[in-house]
Design a protein around this nucleic acid. Sequence first.
DNA 1: GTGAAAGCGCTAACAA
DNA 2: TTGTTAGCGCTTTCAC
Lengths: 369, 369
Amino acid sequence: MNRPIRTRRQATLASLAAELGVSRTTVSNAYNRPDQLSPELRRRVLETARRLGYPGPDPVARSLRTRKAGAVGLLLTENLSYAFRDPAAVGVLEGLALACEDAGVGLHLVPASPGREDRETTAAVHRAGVDGFVVYSVPDDDPHLAAVLQRPVPTVIVDQPQIDGVDRVGPDDASATATLAGHLVELGHRQVGVLCMRLARDRNDGFVPISRQQEAHYHVQRTRLATLADTFEAAGVDWQSVPVVERFEHTVDDGASAARQLLDAYPRVTALICTSDILALGAMAEAGRRGLRVPADLTITGFDGIAEATRAGLTTVHQPVLEKGKAAGRLLLGAGDRVTPKVITLPTELRVGTTSAPPRTAEERWFGP
Amino acid sequence: MNRPIRTRRQATLASLAAELGVSRTTVSNAYNRPDQLSPELRRRVLETARRLGYPGPDPVARSLRTRKAGAVGLLLTENLSYAFRDPAAVGVLEGLALACEDAGVGLHLVPASPGREDRETTAAVHRAGVDGFVVYSVPDDDPHLAAVLQRPVPTVIVDQPQIDGVDRVGPDDASATATLAGHLVELGHRQVGVLCMRLARDRNDGFVPISRQQEAHYHVQRTRLATLADTFEAAGVDWQSVPVVERFEHTVDDGASAARQLLDAYPRVTALICTSDILALGAMAEAGRRGLRVPADLTITGFDGIAEATRAGLTTVHQPVLEKGKAAGRLLLGAGDRVTPKVITLPTELRVGTTSAPPRTAEERWFGP
DNA sequence: GTGAAAGCGCTAACAA
DNA sequence: TTGTTAGCGCTTTCAC
């Protein structure tokens, strides 16, 4: 396959019109409103365009004029690499991409390197030529988010944070978590431990004091922890005594190391509650390494319901991630001039797998079942 | 968190300048060249901007003026969903995203729904406000690709197709495949079967005649098949007699069904050569289902070297997918006004795992090892 | 350090 | 069916 030499965009709509001896409108119409001119003339226009190497109306100029960029921006503070590795995130991304595809608009991934927090960092947000933004799971004090909110375009937030006046799509974390916690309480677990994701932008790989739990900048994690606390307190458990281990990175390995850290210090916990499936998968690996049988010796639960979790038989809360992304895209694209913000709450479902069971009694622990 | 009422973009750079009683230049400088005006004045400008709810220079207008969109377009014909599911594709995507992040430019995913092939379909390509395109693994007759090539911006193709005058990043498929095939020949395999990916835009789930192999519109697949043919012919195998099964979709399940189809018809093959790890993984699953031990009863090889393959001990050709994406991004972003097209060939490495071994002799087959 | 002028390339009333 | 007229909002020489 060969290609023609590329002339450095000399041809413009205007020069084409001049060449043809018609007005710019006519050329424009040839591209945008075929019904506004005779087929014959249109053919001539397109033909001459090809001859002159005119690639069609410049997209940027058109955007400026029509006030439509034909793209939606996606902000995820995390390194993209992360997004591509977490199946739950991929699901959201995929759903969003699908919605964009349907609408024929592009998906513009905004480069938001965390770390550098100066004005330069948020510049990418201001530079993005988009008709709206989808923000996926960022902390409530994220500077990029602030920048997005300044832009005069509609915005939809997925999962977190919750901000008054801004559209949001996400599950009801409180009730989902309450259901999960209820399941564990019912099974009889009272000595539990928790593995959670990043709670703020500063790194804290280790145990989490109550204060940090309550001040978490990630609303989703905050809600899940608070709901767990409420539910277990109601069952007579002193939440102060419940170990919570945080991990900055969200990988299976980090889940494993978090489980190790927790179990080393609290070997008597009967259940490990993880705020994501990824962490739970890591916890299961660590349990295996220690010779702990799941669920006989240790109950482990996750959150999200990713395929790997289902395959592993994990007890978890499933949420429709693909739908979440789709809903966000559709909400944004169909935003129009809606005045009242919309909140879409997606259904979740407790999926009891083979990793949760009643705790063994002390006697069973020492003397076998 | 609350947010201010959003005024429908009334403020512009001009109105701000008017309000302040300064020229537009000054306001522009306040944003783009802080050193061109007194700190005091700059402060006043920014302050007034905030008061008026001016979100900073409009990105589209700026792009038109500066002739820089601040984004690179990514074209992958396949549904995005596919891209997100194939680890090799995700690697490329991730590498590209990394390169974009480094350069502070956005990554614009072009919606390219396959199927509809009319002018409307390629419109998205023409509508994308980008400074260049990365094209990932599309057939050589793809209309979107043709549209991309018409746009007066630099383009880098990853993997396929190979087009004269266009930058390309990819492995040396021929030599990589030759090495792999050599390994199998050396082990003694002469009765082999091949599982390959889509060869053209039309669906053909089944056996592939030589003609279709040679006319494949996916250059990578074509090269791999041709190289296999050459290598085995050189070893005395009549390629005409070698079954090749194609699958349109690229999933583990399709790999399994392809293996089934091939093994049902050719139960005596001693090795299954798959042009991707995904297909190979499926083939392994099918082998297991049939009670065939790998590699004792059947040798299976893949291509790509994805993590799952390594975990499964698959004999495969590893290629640095992340680097591939990064290289593409950097090549594009650093394109400048280069005249001579550049081709970057990435290194590959044969990784012999636990799925390849010498074929059993006929006697062994019937009477045990 | 600041301002005036000249477009970037295009589309959309409105007229003819 | 085609052309005229106005900008969309911004940056950038080049004077002052």
